[in-house]
């Protein structure tokens, strides 16, 4: 094995691993943001429903 092939192998594996983990990291961050947004929406809906409920009971 020549130095060029050896160096290529070393750097290729780094790029391969880096790309794989980075891809998962990006997807994870996107999914976490979506989950956060969903939770916020649900919370808003819940407080809205609660407000309507308390208004009705006052009437």
């Amino acid at each position: 094995m020549s130095l060029e092939t050896f160096s290529f192998f070393y750097y290729f594996v780094f790029i391969w691993g880096g790309a794989g983990m980075l891809f998962i990291a990006v997807v994870l961050i996107r999914e976490m943001l979506q989950m956060g947004k969903k939770a916020d929406d649900m919370e808003a809906e819940l407080s809205k429903a609660k407000a309507i409920g308390s208004e009705e009971s006052t009437i």
């Binding site: 192998f9 070393y10 594996v13 391969w16 691993g17 790309a19 794989g20 983990m21 891809f23 998962i24």
Partner: peptide, 17 residues
């Protein structure tokens, strides 16, 4: 597939190297 072949497989190669 991505968790193992794409992301995991390079890790032992990197540590072996």
């Amino acid at each position: 597939l991505i968790g193992t072949v794409v992301a995991w497989m390079p890790i032992p190669i990197i540590f072996g190297n």
